[in-house]
């Protein structure tokens, strides 16, 4: 069919990573050939490995280190239709001072809000805003018609540029799962490249781009691996599991799989890509399993905010309760942390 031929030989945006890896002229066909040539995932082995990593016992000083590390890796998130500037301000206050009773408590990595809430987050952060520096808290905005991604490209790009202009340091974009599942990899690729371009600021710097794969809708581990490669090839700085709006959200096997892709990419090119599991991680115990998985898969150098994040809201309170337990020697309760 003519449509099919034109589509498969259609040139794609020449993202530098993809050009380097795939070689020659980038087309739908060459991208498809590459992605479908990636070996399949041993699902049983993957889940067994993830379960095995989840059995490590992390106690006392290791646990204290793990809890503080977790706080420093959290993207404290509020993504509700009912969000208000006041809600964002209280979220920011919590991000800056997670435990008012303990000045040694570290700050979170970022706050994650909808695009229209970015100005309020930036204003509330004030001098605590990282704004391109290495210290302070970043503002992450979800964009591209989050969470469904069902809007035209023009709208998605405007959404992104708007959030960047308002001061967002990081953009969490969603891929078009419909296009991906129908095999239109080229379209997904081009969109990521275009959004990456829209992340550029007028001064030439660029907001970090996290690409949400929404693994709960990709159905198979093979698809997750393929989508991870696709997102990295197109220029994503981070690959993120989920929006948090679809069940299942982040799971340990899926995160392990994405970490393996990131590790392979590092071996291939020497470049480090970040991973962000999001949604469904509510307890310190779960979060510690993720830390173990990161350290054992990608390596301990990934345990920093520029390479690993937790997208979470209620996780922080549980970590704070555990910290208080370690500090005081007795169990704490929900009355001793702030209500979100």
């Amino acid at each position: 069919m003519t449509i099919e031929t034109t589509r498969s030989t259609r040139s794609l945006a020449p993202a530098s990573r993809a050009v380097d890896i795939l070689g020659g002229e980038l087309t739908d066909a060459s991208l498809r050939r590459y992605l479908e040539g990636i070996p399949g995932v041993d699902a049983v082995g993957l889940e067994q490995r993830a379960a095995g990593l989840g059995t490590r016992s992390i106690k006392t000083t290791s646990k204290k280190f793990a809890l503080d590390t977790i706080i420093g890796l959290i993207d404290l998130t509020t993504l509700e239709g009912a969000d208000t500037p006041g809600k964002v301000r209280s979220l920011v206050a919590k991000a800056v001072t997670p435990d008012p009773g303990d000045p040694t408590c570290p700050r979170v990595a970022a706050v994650c809000v909808y695009g229209d809430m970015v100005p309020y987050a930036v204003a509330a952060l004030g001098s605590a805003h990282a704004a391109g520096t290495n210290t302070g808290i970043n503002v992450a905005a979800v964009a591209t018609a989050f969470p469904s991604g069902r809007a035209s490209l023009a709208v998605k790009l405007a959404d992104t540029a708007d959030a960047v202009a308002a001061g967002a340091d990081e953009i969490d974009m969603v891929i078009d799962r419909g296009a991906f599942l129908s095999g239109r990899y080229g379209q997904v690729f081009d969109e990521i490249v275009a959004v990456k371009e829209a992340c550029r600021r007028s001064d030439g710097s660029s907001a970090h781009l996290k690409v949400i794969l929404e693994t709960g809708e990709l159905n198979t581990y093979d698809n997750v691996r393929r989508a991870s490669w696709l997102a990295i090839l197109a220029g994503g700085d981070f690959i993120k599991t989920s929006t948090g709006k679809v069940a299942p959200a982040a799971t340990l096997p899926v995160t392990l799989l994405m970490l393996e892709v990131v590790r392979d990419w590092h071996r291939l090119t020497g470049e480090r890509i970040g991973v962000k599991p999001a949604g469904g991680i509510r307890s310190s115990k779960d979060a510690i399993k993720y830390l173990v998985t990161v350290a054992e898969t990608a390596g301990e150098e990934w345990l920093r905010p520029s390479l690993f994040r937790f997208g979470a809201s209620s996780l922080l309170n549980d970590v704070l309760l555990q910290r208080q337990k370690l500090a005081t020697g007795h169990y704490s309760g929900a009355d001793y942390v702030t209500i979100d």
């Binding site: 208080q324 020697g329 007795h330 169990y331 704490s332 309760g333 929900a334 009355d335 001793y336």
Partner: peptide, 9 residues
């Protein structure tokens, strides 16, 4: 003793 000191009791 754990119940007596538990902050959520």
């Amino acid at each position: 003793s754990w119940l007596a000191s538990h902050a959520d009791v």
